[in-house]
Design a protein around this nucleic acid. Structure first.
Lengths: 196, 196
DNA sequence: CCTACCGATCGGTAGG
DNA sequence: CCTACCGATCGGTAGG
């Protein structure tokens, strides 16, 4: 009988979902276990039965994100122009789900401080993102699809920066910024072939 | 005799300086009036004599930033390639003063929420930054210094995004990111003439 | 500007 | 999972 365990696992997921919602509104530092617990329908002491500290809950939130990312990568798109198209599709998804963008933009800004509990996570996150972008730009260069003079290393850093920066501007003034259009335009400017 | 007033003004400046320091470490939401007051050498009730609420202190911090920006603009650089060079010099200054970058990156992320006390400030801030960049890219285009196919409007949004995004990546992993180099490389890729 | 205080809220623990 | 509690900290006020 795994019934009890199953229920516990589901409860944990509910708490994580509630936490993401609260982080989105208040950031991690500004959030409280009591608010997260209330939205999950338990007391804050009950929450601490599942996640022994505030940090443990944050770790679980970031773990879920990694799990989702891993799942998406199961699509197993090869580096190259198709991956760029996939990233644009992902940006479209994000625009329709403002919440997740807000959570990670706020967390990333909080976590620049070396002591922050998510600091190491974001160091790793950026490293992986840059490496993935680098592989793609190198492939494009090899295929003659990268505009001459565009250095793959520099483009990788710049592309991640562009994604992050557009998100903050878009979150601040959603009506004035076309996130997907801007991203597409930027990527197209690096290429010799149409993104489509 | 303006002695009393002068002393008051100086005390206010000391408090604002202390506030910037604390915001840098903890963000605005994560900061406390007691911590700011301690660094300014007074009690938190004393601070509230100068700034009646936590929000009033934030407003003063943002006002100082505007004042500094206005002073820099007194240099009165015309839109165009010289302004781009000036922005690169500004980025160099920022890299040497990590604190101010951290304050505004964190504040910008917190302030994406419509209810945040600095939300309107950042809406205005981004609008002004974009307009300034747009004027420059239009001038460059008119002079044939902008690479063909680069749309000034799109480039303005993208350039501000690039600045913001590079800052967060650089703050997270200062040793892995060459902020000024990346920015210079990006700008050069938009031009037909050397930035120098 | 300070002392002294207020009510509210925080993360975490005890003990069941 | 809850009730009940802890010490710490918060923004703000009174009253001088």
């Amino acid at each position: 009988m795994t019934g009890g365990y199953l229920k516990g696992r589901m409860r944990r997921e509910d708490i994580i979902t509630a936490a993401i919602e609260v982080y989105r509104e208040a950031g991690y530092n500004g959030s409280s276990l009591r608010e997260v617990a209330k939205r999950a329908g338990i007391t804050h002491a009950g929450l601490l039965y599942y996640f022994p500290t505030k940090e443990a809950l944050l770790a679980a939130v970031l773990e879920r994100r990694d799990a989702e990312d891993t799942e998406r990568e199961k699509l197993d798109i090869a580096p190259g122009i198709d991956l760029l198209r996939h990233l644009i599709a992902l940006a479209e998804y994000n625009v329709a789900h403002r919440g997740i963008v807000e959570v990670y933009a706020r967390l990333a800004a909080e976590a620049v401080a070396p002591g922050h509990p998510a600091h190491e996570y974001f160091i790793r996150h950026y490293r992986i993102a840059r490496e993935s972008a680098l592989a793609t730009f190198r492939t494009l260069a090899a295929n003659g699809e990268l505009r001459p003079g565009v250095d793959p290393e520099a483009a990788a850093v710049a592309f991640i920066a562009m994604e992050d920066g557009l998100q903050v501007q878009w979150l601040t003034t959603p009506d004035e910024i076309d996130l997907v259009g801007s991203l597409r335009f930027y990527l197209q400017s690096l290429l010799t072939v149409p993104l489509g």
